[in-house]
């Protein structure tokens, strides 16, 4: 049933900005996507040494 099943089924917390509202969880999911995208762009990709490249 999930270790944190009880916690996950408590009433959700929502953030309100005027007409806009979003659940903390959805906000986390969206932030996670943005962070993933950002990290994918800036983190160095391993195994990219010039010596390994072939012509």
């Amino acid at each position: 049933m999930g270790i944190f099943h009880h916690f996950m089924n408590l009433k959700a917390v929502y953030i309100h900005w005027g007409w806009f509202q979003i659940s903390i969880t959805n906000l986390l999911v969206i932030l996670f996507m943005l962070v993933l995208f950002g990290l994918a762009l800036v983190l160095p990709f391993p195994g990219n040494k010039k010596g390994k490249d072939q012509k």
Binding site: L36, F37, L39, A40, L41, L43, F45, N48, D53, Q54
Partner: peptide, 14 residues
């Protein structure tokens, strides 16, 4: 078994 040298970013894994 090879990819162009520019295929070198985490973005390619998505």
């Amino acid at each position: 078994d090879t990819q162009p040298a520019y295929v070198a970013s985490w973005i390619y894994l998505f």
